[in-house]
């Protein structure tokens, strides 16, 4: 029992990372209706720009800011492609576009960051946050979780209460109608991409030191982020937040069972699937078509 609790708490560190990334993915999907396979790759670009600068001897703060700008810009570029070239395309085509861009970005990223050779990611908020069940929860993990919570609350309030929020919702649900109503579609969409790029970059800067510090692995963090978003059907920020932490905890728990062996990696997937199949038991038809 004790060791189970310990394993679960040990999973929190990953859970915080998945939660904030999951919330970022839902943010992009809710507001510009794109499932963004490149999300974490874009954040990784920003994080690696920061590392290159710190390795070149620049102080941390300007390096972080430059990285942030780089990640945001990269995100805006991908956003530009999906919103301008693919404004009329359906979800499947947009997903295919970001998947293709991901293949491209990983190849470029691995080349420019030196493949598997690790980078010395600086700890932005180093140190031990608190100790629970014999496990140190790092400040970075706590900050990730806190950021995810703040983001969830802030975005929910923003969407519900502000005029821009309303416009954004209109944009994602009926882009054509929104355009006809005079909503500034492109600037808003690019703004969403910029915001999600910046958030993902910050998240990756926090997460990277405790993950495999190579471009490929960091880019593929998009998979657990999607899994977290899936818990809320890509609609609910809170569910994505909870889902992310849940996945981390399940991963932690699964690590304690050697007998699960290679099937360990399938456990979070199965849990999510079960949750979804149950929560969607009433769903009968596709959207109003």
């Amino acid at each position: 029992m004790d060791s189970l609790l310990t394993s679960a708490v040990a999973g929190l560190s990953a859970g915080g990372a998945y939660a904030i990334l999951g919330v970022c993915v839902v943010f992009t999907f809710r507001l510009v209706a794109v499932v963004n396979f490149t999300a974490t790759a874009l954040g990784a670009i920003g994080a690696f720009v920061m590392v290159f600068l710190t390795e070149a001897g620049y102080p941390l703060v300007p390096a972080v800011l430059t990285g942030l700008v780089a990640g945001t810009l990269a995100s805006v570029v991908v956003g530009f492609v999906t919103t301008i070239w693919f404004s009329g395309a359906n979800q499947t085509v947009k997903a295919a576009v970001t998947a293709a861009i991901l293949v491209c970005l990983i190849a470029l990223g691995l080349r420019f960051t030196g493949g598997q050779h690790p980078r010395a990611f600086p700890d932005l908020v180093g140190g031990a946050g608190l100790r629970l069940a014999g496990v140190t929860i790092t400040t970075a993990s706590l900050v990730s979780i806190a950021l995810a919570v703040i983001l969830t609350v802030a975005v929910e309030q923003f969407l519900a209460r502000t005029r821009t929020g309303l416009q954004l919702r209109a944009l994602s649900e009926r882009p054509m109608a929104a355009e006809l109503l005079g909503v500034p579609v492109r600037p808003l969409a690019l703004g969403v991409w910029a915001a999600s790029g910046a958030m993902t970059t910050i998240a990756l800067m926090l997460i990277a030191p405790l993950r495999s510090p190579d471009f490929g692995s960091l880019s593929l963090l998009v998979v657990p982020a999607f899994a977290a978003a899936l818990v809320g059907m890509f609609q609910s920020f809170r569910a994505a937040l909870a889902g992310g932490i849940l996945i981390g905890v399940i991963e932690g728990l699964a690590s304690g069972f050697v007998e699960l062996a290679q099937y360990r990696s399938a456990v979070p997937f199965l849990v999510i699937l079960t949750v979804l199949m149950w929560s969607q038991r009433g769903a009968r038809w596709d959207e109003a078509r």
Binding site: G11, G134, V135, L210, R211, L220, E251, G252, A261, S265
Partner: peptide, 22 residues
């Protein structure tokens, strides 16, 4: 003492280290 043949390739390693320590 511990032989774990299936470390996750992409995952978080905290739980494994905690187990090794404990």
């Amino acid at each position: 003492t511990i032989l774990d043949m299936t470390l996750p390739v992409q995952g978080d390693l905290t739980p494994y280290l905690i187990r090794a320590r404990d």
